[in-house]
Amino acid sequence: MENYAIEVKDVSKGFKTFELRRSGSFFHRLWRKRSWKQALSNVSFRVKEGEIVALLGRNGSGKSTLVKILSGILHPDSGSVRVLGFEPWKDRIKLAARLGVVLGAHSQLFWNISARDSFEFMKGVYSINEREYSQRLKYYLKVLSLGEVFNRQVRSLSLGEQMKCNFVASILHKPKIVFLDEPTIGVDLPSKIALRNAVLDLRAREGTTFILTTHIVEDITMAERVILLNNGSIVFDGSRKQLESMFGDKKHVELRLEEGSAVDFRRYGKLIEKSGDVVKIEVNKSTLKNQRFLRMLNDKSVLDYRVAEPGLNFVLTKFYAKMDRKR
């Protein structure tokens, strides 16, 4: 029997925005224009308990809006939402006790006092009993190597340390589901890795469900499943591997050329990048079997070459380009 942590059906949400007009007469332009932005259109998906899902999309694609609707912060215009069996808007309080949220752009921590103080505050907010609180705190301080850092003033911590502390603050009350909204903006690599490990650990030990929204590709490696949002609609919902091999009929070939090389690599594929003596071209998979191409690779002036998968960044760029062309 499947237990769905999240069930979203035909959810839509729009906002009115206040903009200044750019055209029209002088006085016309003085008055603001109210326009409507459709942030989400008929979004539907389900997430099972214990899944780690990455919600990808460019800025303005609706990811944050979706997370806020799932948290009960925003009210959807239409559609139905169930998180852990609760309707987020109506039963926000009951859901909140089982929900952890890290909003990357906004800290839950008090600025001038130590992170420890903020954790104590959380203990009070969620009425966590002392024993469980100190056990969890001790464990996660270790997992995230926050050791002595958590006794320092939050304002003196680096962004990475702050993010890790925010994460701890959001999971102290043993939530069944955690939303991470752009948690790694401006954060250093070691901290990103630490977060990834903590997420996987939490899922393994407690079966916590995670939704991670991001537009940074490297973050997705902790998720098995990717949902891609574009202009408020889901354009891809599948495994990460599926996404990576989406434009799998293409390969990237990197060539290191001798100075003055006359090799005409352009006839085999599109030039993607050129830096110094290295060029990167995009070729069809079939080209790799082409005799002329193979001969070119063995040319004297080709000092070295490498064949690789396009990579997620590239896949996404092409995906977006395809989406934009359709509009």
Partner: peptide, 10 residues
Amino acid sequence: GGMDTRLIRP
């Protein structure tokens, strides 16, 4: 958006 972090409390 600072209010958002508060609105997730029970």
